[in-house]
Design a protein around this nucleic acid. Sequence first.
RNA 1: GCCUAGGUGGUGGAACUGGUAGACACGCAGGACUUAAAAUCCUGUUCCCGUUAAGGGAGUGCGGGUUCGAUUCCCGCCCUAGGUACCA
Length: 927
Amino acid sequence: MDYNHKSIEQKWQKFWADNQTFKTAETTDKPKYYVLDMFPYPSGAGLHVGHPLGYIASDIFSRYKRLKGFNVLHPMGYDSFGLPAEQYAIQTGQHPAITTAANIDRYREQLDNIGFSFDWSREIRTSEPEYYKWTQWIFIQLFNSWYNKETDRAELIDTLIAKFETTGSSNIKAEADDEVLSFTADQWKAFSEEEQQRELLKYRIAYLRESTVNWCAALGTVLANDEVINGLSERGGFPVEQKKMMQWSMRITAYADRLLRGLDTIDWPEPLVEMQRNWIGKSVGASVKFPVPQLDTNIEVFTTRVDTIFGVSFVVLAPEHDLVDALTTDAQRAEVDAYIDKTAKKSELDRMADTKTVSGVFTGSYAKHPITGEDVQIWIADYVLAGYGTGAVMAVPSGDQRDYVFAKHFNLPIIAISDSQNIEEAADANKEGRYINSGFINGLTYQEAVDALILKLEELKLGKAKINFRMRDAIFGRQRYWGEPVPVYFKNGLPYLIKEEELPLLLPSVDKYLPTESGEPPLGRAENWKYQDQYDYELSTMPGWAGSSWYWFRYMDPTNEKDFAAKEAVDYWKSVDLYIGGSEHATGHLLYSRFWNKFLKDLGYHNEEEPFKKLINQGMIQGRSSFIYRVLDEEGRGTNTYVSLGLKDQYNTIPLHVDVNIVYNDVLDLEKFKSSRPEYTDAVFVLEDGKYICGTEVEKMSKSKFNVVNPDDIVDQYGADTLRLYEMFLGPLEQAKPWNTNGIEGVYKFLRKVWRLFHDTEGNFHVSEEEPTKAEYKALHKIIKKAEDDIERFSFNTSVSAFMICVNELTELKCNKRAILQDLIIVLEPYAPHITEELWTLLGNDAGTISYASFPKFNPDYLVESEFAYPVSINGKMKMNLPLALDLDNKAVEEIVLANADVQRYLDGKPVKKLIFVKGKIINIVI
RNA sequence: GCCUAGGUGGUGGAACUGGUAGACACGCAGGACUUAAAAUCCUGUUCCCGUUAAGGGAGUGCGGGUUCGAUUCCCGCCCUAGGUACCA
């Protein structure tokens, strides 16, 4: 019997499912290993051939780790709350739960076709009440906590209340809102319940406050910063505006420093680490106050270059800055108002795009320089952003290019502050020289100046060293239906939690999935939906990232009703050892997950500072579109004649997308093309060499470009094992690459060769019990070593090649010895589990046991070669091959090489300066 | 602009810490088997010069450098992809 992928794969997929072969054991005598894929959002389009890339890689790694004796946790689930299901519900009226369930079924079917070793008994869906109960529970913990800077961790709010009751607000070091009150213990106790709650809200990690949000009118919801790209929504590309709203937020900024420090402890791809670093955006500098005596206040600025403070020639506020109104003099009022009006009208997009024109206006007021006491003009300009730092900057034209341009434009003074500065043409920010024009820091170096200035500013109470972060708190509420309800109700306008034992707070039914007439979110439509029949529930739902920010814990203990996961399970599985997924989640999911992980650790629920120890970004698989060229007639109208790529320049043509599924190795299947659409039945072709060659282009995979390839089709034609091997063979895992099937035949041929090693020429199964030869052992141990090394460094494509070499060698040797073949298929099992399982049982082993067999032990002795030829060069040139026995020491090698007649001839009596040895071989002779 | 990754045959890509560049596969060309096709197998395939051959030369984006020896390390530049953007 020849290799029949269909019957083999169906048989084993059924066996594995029926026997729960990949159910993760709860034993603890084996070391654990946790391999996780980023779980998919089940979209209506189903999987295309790009989706499984990462899953195949993680499956190979999981299976490899099982063979290496690890207890492997390799689960899968669905991130099933999300916008598309809701949009679809708005259009069709169908409940998102129904479409989501249907999509999940389709996904599951497609995934099962590929033969993954997921433990499906641990499947989770974020939209199931059993799951989101715990997402809500975590929200409750976040609401019930504050961040204590002294202990550098989150603590229960009770510890804060206790401090308020004993010492008031004075000694509290907390991450909190800016406008917290100062009070004594007695004052606190005298506060009303409402006043106390209002104050505590400013400290909670999940908190409610009025904040400027990214409002997307078209989607009817707010968006997080990472969901906004260039002023447009990530989904749909709709315009996004700034709007003030009461919103739930997460105090992720409290964790900014820990999130940053943690990056040094994890094994993640450098670009991703860099993205998170930039997103967090730590800058070290100082906060400086410029007194405004006439208003009895200060303008506080943030600067990374305090040392340039004597170069300050003006101060600039963002147009939205709170003090602008008070600072504007009557004379300047009209001009300032006009300017504010103009910038307010500009969208975020315009404001970002327009970075070249210099604009700004003088307020008419002056501030005092904190050190010299001189008057400094106060300006407003839109290059200063309200959202960063304090929304105000001290302008140092000599050291900052934007300030320089601004000063030139408005004819403001430019003061050199360093003897090494060249400010003829542009600002010069170097820190090399000694200070000039700088009062008491004249003559000092950069570091000396910074230290002296910080000291001085602290003494004057007009400044201090400060660290600023670019990262903002994360907006947590969405005005949407298909998400987790926030377990909060309102009493007297203040939020209160529902009790933990009342969880889950179920998502109520609504008649429509649109906002109410009064503009409330869809949940406002739910009837009789009140807490204790009287209090209004929070109507916004949680954002998409809520459910995915802790899901790896749930897999550890997916059905637990008492905890998000049992303590023993969490203690055993700890954190994810290997996480595979796309880099598009760099500043979203991957940051929020780290945040929640740290938070849950602070509350003592586990002990791991980081959730994902090692992370691999699989590259996107792009579509490779195929084109045919339709010939145009004299009037430029399309005809039904199509010309092959190589001849198209002889005609006037337009390219048309053609379905890639009827193109093989860029050759169009003419019959399939003709029957694809009625209008093509009579199509005429201009061929080259009897073939129609299509043009190609790399584009995103999408239906409209006819370049979507469904993995089911590949599995049907070549089998899951071929698909798995081929996706790995395509190139390095991390690299983006276009999908094409040009080389898939080679992989399929390889599997057939493997099959034939076990079968005689009549196709009957046959292996020999003879003792293998040296050469056979050598071929086997080469692949054992190579496969092991390659998998450990995630170089799957090179190990597929190595398997091909090995099988070619064994075929050449006509090797059908059990001792060799059995080990070979164990090593191959992670890549091609179905064919190896079949061969494993043909060899007489129990079904379902190959996945837990022992990975063969590599023996280096088999690779030692007794005699071989190798090239020796002279001065890097004139290479020649010399035969040589290797079991010799360097001394002997040296003698033999130098005695060689060819070498002697080349040396021509010249003295040898140096011999270069590599691994006991002379590789080069220097003369 | 800044940050990060990358640039190797007709194609996808190998070369793990500097040591025979182009493994493996596709494609292509030629051949065997076959009435024929499919399948399978064999041979060749970086480029240039050399009638075949023996042989020689060039060659890993470009220009330099270090080294006996550089795809690999260093300096400068060009290009591509991804991220980011008035962040004080």
